[in-house]
């Protein structure tokens, strides 16, 4: 599974992209966040304000309950500020 981080999430995690292999029980975006938080202090800090973080699965906006599976591209980022 490829995980991408943007903006201040990228800075806190310390990388913009990582390949991860979460345990089989990790089947939703929320569960993936829980597991990612155990990987490092930077990850835990990146996801501190979990309610403001947005997610996308395979480049579509996703909810905490959205399913994730091996091979997916999952991205985490703050609210967008383009335009």
């Amino acid at each position: 599974m490829k995980v991408l981080y943007f903006a201040w999430l990228r800075e806190r995690v310390g990388t913009g992209e990582e390949d991860v292999s979460p345990p089989a029980g990790v089947t939703t975006v929320a569960a993936l966040v829980d597991w990612l938080c155990t990987r490092s202090a930077g990850h835990a800090r990146a996801f501190e304000q979990r309610d403001v973080i947005r997610a996308a699965v395979n480049q579509d906006f996703a909810d905490p309950d959205s399913p994730v599976k091996p091979g997916d591209e999952v991205a985490f980022f703050p609210p967008v500020t383009g335009g």
Partner: peptide, 26 residues
């Protein structure tokens, strides 16, 4: 189009100035 791309397009702005850098809040 302008209203929607401000809230749906995945861009993030970072501003830098004499007082330092910061990510722009929505």
């Amino acid at each position: 189009l302008v209203d929607w791309l401000k809230t749906k397009a995945p861009f993030w702005k970072r501003e830098a100035g004499p007082d330092g850098d910061r990510w722009v809040d929505p």
